[in-house]
């Protein structure tokens, strides 16, 4: 029996989240099949066939799957499911959308947003907004699982190719239709979606000095955030606030500049993969959670950082 992974893509490119999902799936069993369901998406299947851990690619290429409508995709996956022990997808808005439908149609539970594979039927997942980690055991024959990408490394790409099998299964529920989409275009990514965030605290001194952070952000394609102290001091607007009462973020890289690291702030960013702290106070609590700390005057080092990136 094998594991079925549902690829996330835009009909042209395999999304990075799928690579992390494949890593997680590989820890559940050896044989991993990647389902690429879309429209004119053979390029995605090609890309998927080169990912380490993928033993076979299933390609369901039909206009009914073009927009990943949950009603259609879930029926396709459910039809394939009896041949698999695990059905796995990324816990992205796409995966979260159709996977519970698959579970319900199979009359099994879904285990959402796993961050660790303990065994083939035991998984860890965050609950209560990450304030607790639950270990959950599945009692179902088919396990439907979504994976939190940031908790697993990305599978690598190989030179060799897995075989690609074309499926001729068409499900058109005809209940929903795509109308339009609007891709967020902003100079900088949104805080909650950014891979890199640079945040300033009260140490920034005033709102104008946030320009120093923006310069770094431009180089890194980062979003700019702030601590509550900086917001309360009136440096920047409320919607930039990261923390318990602001936005909860978990980017790959979080750079905290002039932020002391009050627990309320830490609660909003502690799940970041790498935390960098720049602060002139070497006793600032932020250093207790930072992977890399630099004790320095931010007004000296920020321009230097901008130049050297």
């Amino acid at each position: 029996m094998a594991i079925l992974i549902i690829a996330e893509h835009d009909n042209a490119v395999l999304k990075a989240a799928t690579l992390n999902t494949i890593t997680a799936a590989s820890q559940m069993g050896d044989e991993c099949h990647l389902l690429v369901a879309g429209s004119s998406c053979s390029a995605v299947a090609e890309q998927g066939s080169k990912v380490a851990g993928v033993t076979k690619v299933l390609l369901a290429d039909n206009t009914v799957y073009e927009y990943q409508l949950a009603e259609n995709i879930s029926k396709l996956v459910t039809e394939l499911a009896p041949n698999y022990t695990h059905i796995v997808s990324a816990a992205t808005t796409t995966g979260k959308n159709f996977m519970p439908r698959v579970a319900a149609l199979l009359d099994v539970a879904q285990i959402s947003d796993i961050i660790k594979v303990e065994s083939e039927n035991k998984f860890k997942r965050p609950i209560y907004a990450g304030n607790a980690i639950a270990t959950v055991e599945s009692l179902d024959n088919i396990k439907v699982i979504t994976v939190r990408g940031t908790a697993f490394s990305a599978a690598t790409t190989l030179d060799s190719n897995a075989s690609i099998e074309n499926l001729n299964i068409v499900h058109d529920a005809q209940m929903s239709q795509f109308i339009s989409e609007e891709v967020a275009v902003s100079e900088r990514p949104e805080l909650t979606a950014a891979k890199v965030i640079i945040s300033g605290g009260r140490g920034m001194g005033n709102g104008e000095n946030f320009a120093l952070l923006e310069n770094v952000a431009d180089k890194l394609g980062a979003a700019v955030g702030a601590s509550r102290a900086a917001v309360d001091a009136g440096f920047v607007p409320n919607d930039m606030q990261v923390g318990q009462t602001g936005k909860i973020v978990a980017p790959d890289l979080y750079i905290a500049v002039g932020i002391s690291g009050a627990i309320q702030h830490l609660a909003g960013m502690k799940d970041s993969k790498i935390i960098v702290a720049i602060n002139k106070d070497e006793d600032a609590p932020i250093f207790q959670v930072a992977d890399y700390g630099l004790v320095a005057d931010l007004f000296e080092v920020l321009p230097e950082l901008t130049d050297k990136l």
Partner: peptide, 22 residues
Amino acid sequence: HTQLVKVEAPTERQAGIKVNSI
């Protein structure tokens, strides 16, 4: 369908290293 095996507090982050320069 599922059994809750245990619930733990998330592991706390450990302090990393200090670097000396940009």
